[in-house]
């Protein structure tokens, strides 16, 4: 779930307010968005993908953490903005879609093909 809107990093563009599919954020009085409905967060990471300032952190847990994680620690571990970086969004990056060639996957019956073209991504 969304745990952090970094006051230090946020550029008050409201992008997260706009794109969150479950309407988790509200406009903040000083421009920094508020996590207004955390329990509605579906842990889809889309806000992070759209955040141009790497100011958001979505913990992978689908329920709120007892306490938000430490921002400095996340930054040190390279986790702030890591999803955006991995999908190649942001100026000067290569779109991740260009490189998205997955491993061979089983057919619907469950058998992993020995040597099929490694070109399938499925959800």
């Amino acid at each position: 779930m969304i745990e952090i809107v970094s006051r230090g990093r946020c550029i008050a563009c409201d992008k997260c307010v706009e794109v969150c599919p479950t309407g988790v954020f509200d406009h903040g009085p000083d421009g920094v968005p508020l996590i207004a409905r955390q329990s509605d967060c579906q842990t889809c990471f889309m806000c992070e993908a759209y955040c141009p300032a790497d100011a958001l952190f979505v913990a992978p847990r689908a329920h709120p953490l007892p306490e938000p994680p430490d921002e400095a620690d996340l930054a040190e571990r390279g986790l702030l903005g890591s999803y955006r970086r991995q999908i190649g969004w942001g100026h000067g990056r290569t779109p991740g879609a260009l490189l998205a060639v997955g491993p061979p996957l089983p057919d619907a019956g469950g058998a992993v093909p020995a040597a099929s073209p490694a070109d399938v991504i499925i959800s």
């Binding site: 999908i87 260009l98 998205a100 070109d119």
Partner: peptide, 21 residues
């Protein structure tokens, strides 16, 4: 202009999509 990956034969591989893109 979806940025599909390109295979060894130089052709785009159009069998998958990344959701956000």
């Amino acid at each position: 202009r979806y940025p599909f990956p390109v295979g060894e034969d130089g052709a785009q591989i159009r069998r998958g999509l990344q959701g956000p893109e």
